[in-house]
Design a protein around this nucleic acid. Sequence first.
RNA 1: GGGCGCGUAGCUCAGCGGGAGAGCACUACGUUGACAUCGUAGGGGUCGCUGGUUCAAUCCCAGCCGCGCCCACCA
Length: 883
Amino acid sequence: MLDKTYRPGEVEGRHYARWEADGAFACGQRPDGAPYTIVIPPPNVTGSLHMGHALNNTLQDILIRYHRMRGRDALWQPGTDHAGIATQMVVERQMEKEGLTRHDLGRDAFIERVWRWKDESGGTITGQLRRLGASCDWSRERFTMDDGLSAAVRKVFVDLYKQGLIYRDQRLVNWDPLLHTAISDLEVEQREVQGHMWYFKYPVEGRPGTFVTVGTTRPETMLGDTAVAVHPDDDRYKDLVGATCILPIQDRPIPIIADEYADPEKGTGAVKITPAHDFNDFEVGRRHDLEMVNVLDRDARMNDNVPDHYRGLDRYECRDALVKEMEGLGLLERIDDNLMMVPYGDRSGVVIEPWLTDQWFVDAATLAKPAIEAVEQGRTVFVPKHWENTYYEWMRNIQPWCISRQIWWGHQIPAWYGPDGTVFVEHTEEEAAAAAERHYGEAAVLSRDGDVLDTWFSSALWPFSTLGWPEKTAEVARYYPTDVLVTAFDIIFFWVARMMMMGLHFMGEVPFHTVYIHALVRDERGQKMSKSKGNIIDPLELIDGYGADALRFTLTAFAAQGRDVKLSAGRVEGYRNFCTKLWNAARYCEINECRPDPGFDPAACRLTLNRWIVGKVLEAGERAAKGIESYRFNEAAAALYQFTWGTFCDWHLEFARPLLQGDDAAARDETRAATAWVLDRLLALLHPIMPFITEELWEHMGEGRETPLIAASWPVLDPALIDPAAESEMDWVVRLISEVRAVRSEMNVPPSAHIPLLHRDASAETRARLDRHRDAIASLARISHVEPADDVTRGAVQVVVDEATYILPLADVIDVSAEKARLEKEIAKLDGEIARFDKKLANRGFLEKAPPEVVETERERRDEAAHARAKLDDAVERLSAAL
RNA sequence: GGGCGCGUAGCUCAGCGGGAGAGCACUACGUUGACAUCGUAGGGGUCGCUGGUUCAAUCCCAGCCGCGCCCACCA
């Protein structure tokens, strides 16, 4: 016997362990089924489950479980990401408490320590994904720094290098002065900061009293200025082009050049050029072959290229001192307030400096071309489609991708340098040595490049590296390309775009045919969850409090396309109640001995009720299937919620009660079997969204059943099981009962009072229906008996359903004038409707241009309304006559 | 500066060319043993504003107003 309420904590772990132990998540179980593959967006090993993960993985699990039930050979490929900078920071912070830096340990020992940390603590998130119910094939779990995936990284690097698509270059990069590494453009976030604009006067050589005024937001960088630029068409400066300024403080002559970069509209029209510390100036410097004077060191302190009194100062200390000095020299014209965007490192949170260094780059523009075409041609589609614009915008303006990082945790770049600096890029040290020997004609001492690769470099290979590539594995052949990638928009550039590029380049095929971009999860006020705001809702707390299924259903129900999910515990509580409802429906079935009967044939049902509910559950399943397949998860959830609560529980179980408890054995047995069959189907339909409670009920309801629900088949709609006649009849019963309930409530008839239901003008068909559903109507509308009305008794309430009028004799209970008013209100409402229909039907444009079937339904509706109105008129008349 | 999304019941949101919907909240009544984590009934909306297209617009188009987000080199 089922408990009175569902206790998720007691069943979730048990079912999950059994699924995993039985290999229910494993791919390859259905070799005849077409493969269906999703690769998980690998969470950082440092991570713990947050709401974003919960939503992301719930949706993937729904897709995987659904397609598995539909007979596909489903593979959900799991794994984690080594998260270079993030992980290194975690371990370094730990060491800080011991007073150690990574340099104290040395590279090898430090990396060993990170591995130890990973082995001990890196499994947190995969454990939490299990709590959520994620049916990943854990036997295939991968880590981006596994041997196989590392081999893939090396091969990709070497190949791209040899194809000229990876190169080493000295250029400006985003330098993080805290972490001491370059980072990519994407890892920089711009923050609005209230700053200043300083206007400095630079004396012009050989023209005493002549100055060029330049504006700058970064005064300290003037020490690295190597030119002043003006626009070639700017008349104000025409005669100064070609002249030379004396850079104050440094006393360095710098040319005044003409370049279109200078904007006459901005500032003074003259702009200082610091090629080593500004991305635009860098380009200007390259065009004019200007000297690049680097004035900062790796900590963003002033280096030896500045006067003694500034050396070693932090750039901001230097700024203050320098402005004072310029002012003392009489070369500070003025200072304006200036709102500006300042770059910050997304990991370190410190201001990023453009800094001139040697780094490795990927020629992203070349790789992007096929990736753009693939989307243009629809070989990969984004859902919702508008995200394709975001993808295009970035891909069409893509910049070289800086992939080297000056940290230790990650894939070390497979490049070795000879004594003269010649670089050898090979898969192994041995191959590099061999290459060097060929190059030099003798063995040479090589030193390996110390940098590691951007974490996203290995993530970009994830859809095929996890399948065993570059080995020619059966998995690569079978499961690549994958089907759908499920992710949030914030990593379209970081990850999706790069997988597209690498997948197309190395596999010759797109990595996935669909990219489903889901919403972000926010707090109930719509704010992004963050530690600093303290508004984080922990999915694990919700799982503990309400069960994983309630959380999953909530996320699914709110996962409408194009809108963020605003989450609160209250919402989850609502869906916990839904779990309870389902649980109790099963309890009802158990109490009434509705047991699954393998011999039951739904097509052989004789009772209208059963024919109806069989069709209904399959229709609900059809809507759910459509929702899942079109990534409208909220629609799938809504269809199932509505059916479960609004149809199965509210109506079917109530209708079934008199049959299940009645004397007609044939009717009772059929209803038992049909109800059990429908519940079984319902559990299957709900399983992808709510795997735990459905598996528990499946097991409980069908004792001795061999197949667990996770391995059962999705109930497919058989059109032969839809009976329109049954549907229209049950619809009529529902309407009749609802009408009676409504007037009873309106007339304040006590629920305990059983009253007769009289009818007039009822057709033979209606009388047959009244007879067939007598017990259900009696119990649900609290009716004592049903009979034709010979005469209207005084004090009767009347309702119209289709052709018939129903009379509830309520002498002494009702107020006749109130009843008359009620009827007249109904009539007025119908009159409004009729007038609207008439107007429409009198419109020639409508009659001529609207589709005939639309005109026809409008006519029918008009007639129905008019008919009901006439019935109500009669009712009013009878009421008056009775007075 | 460019791009995207959103403004529908008190709240959170579905719907998106032909009869305004759900959940929660609210009000009234209620235990007829699956369920009070419940049942029955009810109130509540000029579908942001203004034009246009159409026989017909909450839905399509344009403009405006108000929110939010992404990208961008503005000295």
